[in-house]
């Protein structure tokens, strides 16, 4: 039922659109371009006419050769559906003719609310919606990932490299030539490494020392 309604509405709208188009083309105001438009060659017209004839007769041809899907014939022969379709076509054509052929109004588009008008004129804003959703999100994501790649992932790698180079440079310029400085540096770092390595044993060591000190007093 719902689908039938959609079909009838679409049929009516298609009829409206076609009559509107033909009315504007052949019964509208003359413009400099249309007044000088030449008739098309018969080479162009003939195939168009043949194809029009074929298109009009195609349902009958298909029915004749039993090419229509099963049940389609019943739908076609259904008189109420046929009347509904004819009615929707007639209504669409009549409305279009009223506005565009007989010029009942100067600007028929003004009858429709401007928001709805613009919605139809700009194709439901589909290109803009697509631009802001699908394209925009992918573009933003790609920019973000590229930034992340350049400055975080690769940045970290470059930082490691830079730190290594800087350490090497610092070591190079730290060569003073004085033995005392070298000995002091080595001693300091050996002590620091030793402290670091034995850090986990420190609490046990302290407990042991504390117990040894505590023993004499208990005695």
């Amino acid at each position: 039922m719902g689908l039938g309604g959609v079909m009838i509405a679409t049929n009516g709208l298609a009829a409206f659109a076609l009559v509107r188009m033909f009315s504007l083309m052949f019964a509208g105001d003359r413009t400099p371009m249309t007044s000088r438009a030449p008739e098309p060659l018969w080479l162009v017209v003939l195939p168009m006419m043949l194809l029009t004839g074929l298109t009009l007769h195609l349902p009958l041809v298909m029915q004749k050769f039993s090419l229509l899907p099963q049940g389609a014939g019943e739908i076609i022969l259904n008189p109420s559906l046929g009347w509904l379709l004819l009615g929707s076509s007639g209504l669409g054509m009549a409305i279009a003719a009223f506005f565009y052929l007989f010029r009942a109004m100067q600007r028929p588009a003004a009858l429709v609310p401007p928001i709805f008008n613009r919605l139809l004129a700009y194709d439901f804003y589909t290109p803009k919606v697509y631009q802001f959703t699908a394209i925009g999100s992918v573009w933003l994501l790609s920019r973000l990932t590229d930034w992340l790649d350049r400055y975080v992932v690769d940045g970290l790698v470059n930082l490691v490299g830079f730190t290594s180079l800087l350490s090497g440079e610092a070591l190079k310029y730290g060569n003073s030539g004085r033995l005392q400085v070298y000995a002091l540096t080595i001693t300091f770092f050996v002590a620091a490494i030793g402290l670091y390595m034995s850090w986990s044993y420190m609490p046990g060591l302290m407990v042991m020392l504390f117990k040894q000190e505590a023993l004499p007093s208990s005695l």
């Binding site: 992918v138 573009w139 790609s142 590229d146």
Partner: peptide, 10 residues
Amino acid sequence: LYGSVTAIAQ
């Protein structure tokens, strides 16, 4: 996904 998305920005 990472390779494809990053390629778009190049």
